[in-house]
C-alpha cells in the first residue's frame, strides 16, 4: 500500500509541483528584464532633465524681454494716436 502511495505521489504530485515552481521562476526572471528596461528608461529621463536648470535662464530672458516689450509698448502708446 505504501509503495502505491509513493508511486502516486511521485508520478502526480511531483510533476505538478515542478511545473508550478518552474512557472514562478520563469515569471521572476521575466520581471528582472522588465526592471532593467525601466531602470534604463528612468536613467535616460533623469539625464534628459539635466538641462532643466537652463529654464532659469529662459525665465530671466523672458522677464527681460517682456520688460522691454512693455517699455516699447508704453512708448508706442504715447506716440501713436488711438483709433
Amino acid at each position: 500500500m505504501t509503495w502505491v502511495l509513493s508511486l502516486i505521489v511521485l508520478l502526480v504530485v511531483l510533476p505538478v509541483v515542478v511545473v508550478l515552481l518552474n512557472n514562478v521562476l520563469k515569471e521572476a526572471n521575466a520581471i528582472t528584464g522588465s526592471i532593467d528596461r525601466i531602470t534604463a528608461a528612468a536613467r535616460a529621463g533623469s539625464k534628459d532633465l539635466d538641462a532643466a536648470p537652463l529654464l532659469l535662464t529662459t525665465q530671466q530672458q523672458v522677464r527681460d524681454t517682456v520688460a522691454n516689450v512693455a517699455a516699447y509698448g508704453g512708448s508706442l502708446d504715447v506716440i501713436v494716436d488711438d483709433a
Binding site: S6, L7, V9, L10, V13, L14, V17, V18, L21
Partner: peptide
C-alpha cells in the same frame, strides 16, 4: 523517495 524528491525540487 518521493518525499525526498519533492523536497529537493522545492
Amino acid at each position: 523517495v518521493a518525499v525526498v524528491l519533492i523536497v529537493l525540487a522545492l
